[in-house]
Design a protein around this nucleic acid. Structure first.
Lengths: 230, 230, 230, 230
DNA sequence: TATGAATGAGCGTTCATTCAT
DNA sequence: CATGAATGAACGCTCATTCAT
């Protein structure tokens, strides 16, 4: 659909650890750890965090219940770990992918596309990050979402760069702008997930970009708009 | 801070039912129902839905545990009821308040202000609606959020009116625009709640409005902006 | 089916208290008491003692929950009262009906017929007396089943009379014989109730009588049997 | 008392499984399953099914509450399992024991003796099977009592054999006869249990047998009876 | 490392009973 | 007598976590 065929923000990273020479395994049998994590994503996505039983995750991962506790502190930690590892992968992938684009507007556009295309490619992960994660009290309370902050900062950087390049308005409070962008994407993905993913998510990217860039307001006469002009 | 001193979207309604001579009690002591609901808001806000014990809500409401089940089907229903009743009040209040403003831009601005001021005035309610509610599996799965849809539609109407008045761009997809607005507000309030409400929420209203109206993009030269111009 | 058309052991008594001049009402509104009792029989029969809610009995009787406690000490007492009152009616009716028969064998036969015909006519009562009653711990433990003992004694009397009349063997221990007769009837009715009452209960009366009178054993040659003889 | 020294219908089977080298444990500690079952028999017998708390059974079995649910689906299942396992043991033991007797009358006599002697030897089991079991709504409603039917059929076989051997009257309906025998035994044991087991149960066996075989009726003159004859 | 049987704290919910009106 | 809203004790069951093997 999109020319942003690198939109899948996970696969990139998936390849590296297994295939490359660089093994960043903390645990000997890191494959088991990954199997547990993948099973957790599946089960959480299907049943919801609270309906998911640790024993079911264990069964799906092909390990004993107790084994899970060799890799994760507890059920909550499982959820948090999904978040941390996936967000980190996302951050890495995004940063790498956006380096290809030099222009701020193009970067901004690509960011939106990747966000939507990424979740579209990993709907189970989308369900977990968008819905189930919020059910963890540890996640919602007191836990420093470092990687999420990084993602927000990342959005901020793109906007800031745009301001430096004089492509974006200089008077926008950065903290607000990034929250605004993230909030919208978050809302759009959540709605899509909770509605049962009935439509193509990435289709929304361009209109969203347009809206962000130009605003709701009808521009003062004398200003030309590609779409509006006839 | 704001001239929108009716920003508190709940109190308005709070006053009405008590003020009239007509008591709409199903049960003799319908005050008991309200006490339970208020207690639930408090407890849910403080402890989170899953950490909250029904018996604690009962204690805070000054009723027996079993009494709660005379008014609500179960713990989940308690949460859903908070959502439904409060959202309904919000929808009523907002609709009423916005009628005062005729101009679309002013309406839009007032909407944003009320949303933020309202949650600022009822932080416990904010916590429940923004955070705890999402922990109810019944809420997140399969339950028709009618009042939420109404709120979204309401936002949509304001935008649509603006388009008719030629104040807003006609080429914006409504469904997207309202989600964008709601998503931003949702995100902003959630962040504020989860961060411990460290700042004045309504302060964000004007910048948000500005951003929505004019977009991120630096306007083409030749277009004047009040704030930007020096 | 049977010539024992007075088999219905309840109706007889039903008529007397209301119709006659002799009102044995302890409570003013004894009609309410009866309505509650009848409702209890229905509900207990349909749902079982433990699945039956006092409030449901109240609803079916058309009284308030609390009213039941003006007539009965508690739920258990309700069940016990059904037993006591119905058994008393049964005892009275049976004693009266059997007076018509003078011959011991005929009496015995009539007793069996009435027992089976009676439960057949009041299947709900049958269900309660045969099944639900045993679910009351007060009934099963420590409670003196006076009326049941009377019924057993009554059976005993019939047998004893038969012995005096030299119609029945004199060497049968009475206590055992009456238990044997009662046990069989009890089992037969219980089976019928629990099986969903799929057949005509009274049909079993004659074979049962025959079995009791003559035993299982093939009689020594030289003794003639109406049925066996060809 | 009796020459039927194998009357205890449980112990026989108890010995066998332990005696062999083959352990039929599903769970490592299948002894735990038995401990729970035995504890349940004790507690149910003493307090009654509904007064018995699962935690008390657990305590008496020396396991944690939750452990019970590793072996049994729920409290009801505990009761049903007692019934099924014990009835099966009884059926096996009885069938084996009766094979020793070839004559139908002797078999019949032994059956009655074993039934009474068996319950006498295991009064707690008697209480559970005779009284508490009937308190389980699952047992009383909709549950197929296969093993009970087998027991009844077993009685039926003995009677049928007697008919073939021309020892018993050929004109007795089998279905009725077996119910009559079972009903009597059931009633006799229930009475004994509920009365607090004040007498020797097996003493009743011979008179019962006699009653069944010869009936209540005084035999026509010319027929001699050992007991009656003087 | 890996297992999985065992643990036991924890809680939502029911419903017989009471009692103020 | 009658009501029915309110009570609150009581308990079966789950399941995350542990630990002996």
């Amino acid at each position: 659909m999109s020319t942003l065929n690198d939109g899948s923000f996970i696969s990139t990273v998936y390849i590296h650890p297994g295939g490359g020479a660089i093994a960043r395994n903390n645990h000997k049998n890191s494959d088991k750890r990954r199997r547990i994590l993948d099973a957790a994503v599946s089960v959480f996505a299907e049943k919801g965090f609270f309906q998911s039983k640790v024993s079911e995750i264990a069964r799906m991962a092909g390990v004993a219940d107790g084994t899970i506790y060799l890799y994760f502190k507890n059920k909550d930690d499982l959820l948090i770990s999904i978040f941390e590892e996936k967000m980190q992968e996302i951050n890495v992938t995004f940063r790498r992918a956006l380096e290809e684009e030099k222009d701020a507007r193009a970067r901004f556009r690509k960011l939106i596309h990747m966000h939507l295309a990424g979740f579209q490619a990993y709907p189970e992960l989308a369900a977990v990050l968008q819905v189930e994660l919020r059910q963890s009290s540890r996640f919602m309370r007191g836990y420093k979402k470092v990687e999420l902050k990084k993602y927000l900062d990342f959005i901020g950087e793109v906007i800031e760069q745009g301001q430096k390049e004089r492509a974006f308005r200089p008077d926008i409070p950065l903290g607000l702008a990034k929250r605004l962008v993230f909030g919208t994407l978050d809302e759009v993905v959540s709605t899509w997930v909770l509605a049962g993913r009935p439509y193509d998510l990435e289709t929304l990217a361009d209109p969203i970009v347009d809206l962000f860039l130009r605003g709701i307001q009808r521009e003062p006469s004398g200003t030309k708009t590609e779409t509006e002009r006839r």
